[in-house]
Design a binder for these strands. Structure first.
Lengths: 262, 262
DNA sequence: AGAGTCAGCTGCTCTAACCAACTGAGCTAG
DNA sequence: CTAGCTCAGTTGGTTAGAGCAGCTGACTCT
């Protein structure tokens, strides 16, 4: 039934053609409109918020969300972290995903990048160099992200662009939290310049190779491949009726320390 | 603060290495554990459920979710439907996304598909033919999905496979609900057989072309391209403080009719 | 005219109670 | 003795009412 409430709110957004940012009915209004209690309305809204469909602002109102891929990053990052800790190769899978998509894309349109995009890429690589010199790790990463975003801007497909940026975000968030690899900024810069040069030359194969080298470099930094499959632990849940002892109470209480987001 | 509760539950899953299907503390336990009211716990769980991170079963308990891409389908489908109704080209963008990823992938590994996978693809195309003859639209679509899934199984990257299946699901759900194109089952079968033959031949370029033809065919069925950009309607929300009249109360009340999921 | 205050929205959290689904122990009837 | 039922006790689902917190806008005092 809670699911039903969500569906009805979604239907309301669809039927009214509400654009991103449009105000939704207030909680009391939704109560009367849907004929359910305040609590149910709130739970439905919370779920929709988690999916990025609505945007709730305290003391202000509820609005149609931007429908970005942000919640997907959240889910992907969590899935990756959880898998990593369970001994799966999730981080490598995520990197392979980026590699597969990006190399496929660059092969498709690398030869027809307009000059203005090339110029922007050039400027970005220059900025990366400068930041590598200055030792500004954070800004370097941001520029790295911008580089990859600019590379696929020419596709004129915002959905695709958002998705790739989402993958980038998820990967870097998890990598930053899980593995503490000593970055070599200069190498990173060089790889990106290689990619740019290859793209500028219009040589599709060379561009693909440069990109693959870049990802290969990243992959080696993840360390040796872990056991391909996880420990196959515990029959995948399936029918866990045996709710034995509810586990020793974990120390979750007041840990605002180590609130590293995960 | 509600966000904080979600984070702490996520942290609990991570820290305890809980696998999919493992039981989580009950709601009263979480209340004491986190020191918040039941209501807040429930709202956090609802949000996590929406992201597929936990699985709530009435009268049974709360469990760690399968972390599948299902919630992403939900979000993607909604985003696409909403965009479509707002005059954007969202459905075409989604199709282009599939095309870009799949053509990129097939180029990478089409030439090294093991014989067993080829045999499975063959069997699937045969089944598609049979279903096309029988006029079983639904089963045909399912087999179509299986075909595309089998095509990328050799990559041994479950994340990638799930994502592609998620794209397929989202696209077909939206297409089924939005546009009522008269399918020509035989053509669909032929296109898939072309892809299979090309892949079997080991000719990468031919495989890529076959796949691109397939998507091109789908694209033409979406009708002529809509205005590249949306109507640019209403400054993208941004700072909608002007909460004017809350809109005429939409008829959402008792519509279990037309509960077509959207 | 400008700054402060207050009433009124908004969403946020808590408490308490009851409803509904499911389990498992114990009872009853065969 | 077993098959089936019933009934307590668990779980999550829903409702109600109260008060708290953030924001806005108009009103008032300086």
């Amino acid at each position: 039934m809670a699911r039903d409430i969500q569906e009805r709110i979604k239907k309301l957004i669809i039927d009214q053609r509400l654009p991103s940012g449009a105000p939704l009915p207030t909680e009391p209004e939704l109560m009367k409109l849907l004929g359910v209690s305040r609590n149910s309305v709130r739970e439905a809204l919370k779920a929709l918020q988690a999916m990025g469909l609505v945007d709730i602002r305290h003391g202000f109102g509820t609005y149609v969300g931007q429908m970005s891929m942000a919640p997907m990053i959240e889910g992907l990052a969590f899935r990756t972290v959880a898998g990593h800790y369970r001994g799966e190769d999730s981080l490598r899978q995520l990197l392979e995903l980026r590699e597969a998509v990006e190399t496929g894309l660059v092969a498709q349109h690398a030869c027809r990048l307009p000059e203005e995009d090339l110029a922007e890429l050039e400027a970005l690589v220059d900025r990366m160099d400068a930041m590598a010199e200055a030792g500004a790790e954070l800004e370097l990463a941001q520029t790295d992200r911008d580089f990859h975003a600019a590379l696929y801007r020419g596709l004129r497909n915002p959905l695709l662009s958002e998705l790739l940026e989402a993958f980038w975000d998820a990967f870097h968030r998890v990598q930053r939290d899980l593995v503490d690899v000593p970055q070599d900024p200069r190498t990173t810069c060089r790889r990106h310049r290689d990619i740019l040069d290859a793209v500028r030359s219009g040589d599709v194969l060379r561009a693909e190779r440069a990109l693959r080298d870049h990802f290969g470099h990243l992959r080696t930094r993840l360390g040796p491949p872990r056991s391909g499959q996880p420990v196959a632990g515990g029959a995948e849940g399936e029918d866990v009726r045996s709710r034995e002892s509810p586990r020793d109470p974990v120390a979750v209480g007041g840990s605002s320390l180590a609130a590293r987001e995960v």
